[in-house]
Design a protein around this nucleic acid. Structure first.
Lengths: 225, 225
DNA sequence: TCCCGCAAAGCTGTTAGACAGGTTATAGCT
DNA sequence: AGCTATAACCTGTCTAACAGCTTTGCGGGA
């Protein structure tokens, strides 16, 4: 791993100030200079942390006035709680069931020819990766992502990418397991994906949603029988 | 709106470099000094952008070596495409339908007494805010968030928070509209929320999901009749 | 010719100080 | 008391510099 930047400490420190001092939404943070002194770093470092906090929607800076709390970070996990602490093998699947099944349904409904080609390309890559019996979790996730994209609705990608870390972890685990397993498992995974893509190709919304749900369900079972 | 920071331009500029020059994952970006010169800003600004890009998982900095592409941002919209450019009034709703309906269902299934109290508290705040005929979009969103939290599954919160910006924008618009509307609209919104909470209280999964879907559907209709 | 080692150049990480331009609070005047 | 001007403070940005790490390239030895 990369060693932590000072601005990461500043980021965490500011979050802790908000939580520990129970700053309400709208409350003003200490000035950049004050924060710099408190953390024993330069103002530039504090600014790097504040820019991240602002882009994470936690704070908001008003020129000349100060930085203000925009939303309490107390339960905003994404930014600083590592994915390992989530009940990932179960938790993320629950969200993926509904999210990706709906994405598959919509992709089947209104994919353009171009989006379909993009999905097919992802399927082809996954096929090659699986048949070479190499770890294929990157290609796997990429195909799911392409399907989300084929909905034409960026909001699906936003939600998908937010879960990216967890999804990644799950698939990594899935690969580690399936690699030490008979090849029929790999063939099954391939078939499941092909059914999803086929339904999208055939513009069959219910079939696509069903195939996606089945695939995710089986995937979870493979992980924790 | 707040006027844009220079680091926002730098952020978008770097993203564009990656896309336009088709930099593969692992490719090296121009040095901070080079980027600063290209954008006509100081190195500090470029660093603020790079820290954000790194925290967004798009780039990775290696001390002494440079910054490298970690994942292609081509379609990672969340970070730099302003929510206004999304088909928010439609797009985000599509995701919220499935996501929040499922959250309501699960909340009804396995909420603890403590989580229920947390939801009730959010409902009470929303009631007060609506009855005082003040803008209540913060309380509105907060209640939805508490329901997502009552699932006990952090992944729902992650997905919810990812859509936070859009949801916020939608609700803001909703408030702006409903404030200039007859009070029966406000009463209706209140009733819809109360039905959702009541279903969760009664541990009625299907009722909760249905009420949530109805509420979101009506909410969208109120925005774009 | 090929390989190894070392030095130089380049890069990120961080600091200090400065100034422009905006906001807030205060002191003084009416 | 109410208003206004001004001073104090804050964010946004720039410049210059240095520490520590990595890569490059050159030169010498085998």
């Amino acid at each position: 791993m990369n060693q932590a930047r000072l601005s990461d400490h500043a980021y965490a420190g500011i979050v802790e100030i908000i939580n520990a001092q129970d700053l309400e939404v709208g409350a003003r943070l200490p000035s950049e200079a004050a924060l710099a002194e408190r953390f024993g770093v330069s103002r530039a470092i504090v600014r790097e942390a504040l820019v991240r906090l602002a882009s994470d929607g936690i704070t908001e800076a008003r020129r000349g006035a100060g930085s203000f709390v925009k939303s309490r970070p107390s339960q905003r996990l994404a930014a600083f709680m590592p994915a390992t602490e989530l009940p990932a093998t179960l938790g993320s699947y629950e969200v993926r069931f509904v999210l990706e099944a709906e994405a598959a349904r919509l992709a089947a409904t209104r994919r353009t020819a171009q989006e379909m080609a993009y999905v097919e390309e992802g399927m082809e890559r996954l096929r090659e990766a699986l048949l070479s019996s190499e770890p294929a979790h990157v290609e796997d996730m990429d195909l799911h992502r392409r399907i989300a994209q084929a909905t034409g609705n960026p909001a699906f990608l936003i939600a998908f990418d937010a879960l990216h870390g967890d999804v990644d972890k799950i698939m990594q685990a899935g690969v580690d397991i399936s690699r030490s397993r008979p090849p029929e498992v790999i063939a099954t995974m391939l078939r499941e994906h092909e059914q999803i893509v086929a339904a999208i190709r055939a513009q069959d919304p219910e079939g696509a949603a069903l195939a996606m749900r089945w695939h995710l369900w089986e995937g979870r079972r493979r992980l924790m029988p």
